[in-house]
Design a binder for these strands. Structure first.
Length: 286
DNA sequence: ATGGTTGCCAAGCAA
């Protein structure tokens, strides 16, 4: 959706003109299988930066060539065979900052890069938080324990900012924090992704890092908003049992510059789709 | 209440 007047100076009077900048996030669920969809998405929507999760692709097999051909010449990857994996793809130069091994399990679930835009250095974190298995009890389910530990460690990822720098955090965070982030709050209270222990730690983590939830800045928390629909549904659109598992956050100094938040729900209906859809945050930077 | 699908890679495991 587009935001109405942001209270700033009208575009037509601004000099120098604002610099558009956009960041997208998408859990692609196998980047090699879905390269045609990635290429279509980049061609149609032209984000400056695309953060992918669940690439399921070793680094030496990552499809660099077709992305470079589309003008995305700057690519940082952190992949492994079969599972997990993140990649950050950009039209603008990237500087790798960190691939952090949260919970020291050797999983490829995080990648941080710097990108310059509008006179600012922007630190972009790309995250793939563990799904956590089925049983929402850390005592009997090690995968849920891992998820809680991972989010606890994310409490120490701050939204660093200043006159000349800012931060963005995106990714599949595998938690739907608000009641309107799931199709039925009541029916999902004991379902991993929406349990109180997860949603409370999630919101505490966001506040501890001084992050702004840009999706909910753009789209009122009273509205249902989903980014994921299970494959285990005959008709995902008709039943619409979705969840908001993918997120876009920024530092406080970037949030006033947000101009649009596009959740590409249609992508769930593309041929051989991911179960997640892309989300694009658009900014006008000074 | 249970099982429903997909992708890895070739049997379950993870989601």
């Amino acid at each position: 959706m587009r935001l109405a007047g942001s209270g700033r100076i009208p575009l037509s009077f601004r000099f120098p003109p604002p610099m558009p900048f956009s960041v997208a996030t998408w859990n692609i669920n196998s980047v090699r299988l879905r390269m045609p969809l990635v290429e279509h998405f980049l061609t149609a929507h032209q984000p400056d930066v695309l953060c992918l999760q669940e690439t399921k692709c070793p680094d030496d097999m990552f499809p660099l060539k077709p992305l470079r051909k589309l003008g995305y010449e700057h690519i940082e990857i952190s992949g492994q065979k079969g599972y997990h994996g993140v990649a950050t793809i950009s039209k603008r130069p990237l500087e790798i900052v960190e691939k952090r091994d949260f919970c020291t399990k050797g999983d490829c679930r995080h990648l941080a890069v710097n990108v310059s835009a509008g006179g600012k250095r922007i630190l972009v974190h790309n995250f793939y938080v563990p799904a956590g298995g089925d049983e929402p009890d850390p005592e009997i389910n090690p995968k849920f324990r891992h998820k809680l530990d991972f989010v606890a460690e994310m409490h120490h990822v701050p939204a660093t900012s200043g006159d000349d720098h800012a931060s963005i955090l995106v990714g599949d965070l595998n938690i739907a924090p608000l009641e309107t982030d799931v199709w039925s709050h009541r029916q999902l209270l004991k379902v991993v992704s929406h349990t109180p222990i997860e949603t409370e730690s999630f919101e505490a983590m966001r506040k501890a890092g001084n992050w702004v939830d840009l999706m909910r800045q753009a789209i009122p928390p009273t509205e249902k908003l989903f980014t994921w629909w299970s494959y285990r549904s005959k008709d995902w659109a008709a039943s619409n049992r979705g969840r908001r598992l993918d997120h876009v956050w920024s530092s406080q100094n970037l949030s006033p510059h947000l101009t649009a938040m596009d959740v590409l729900t249609d992508a769930r209906g593309w041929e051989r789709p991911s179960d997640h859809v892309p989300v694009i945050a658009r900014f006008d930077l000074d």
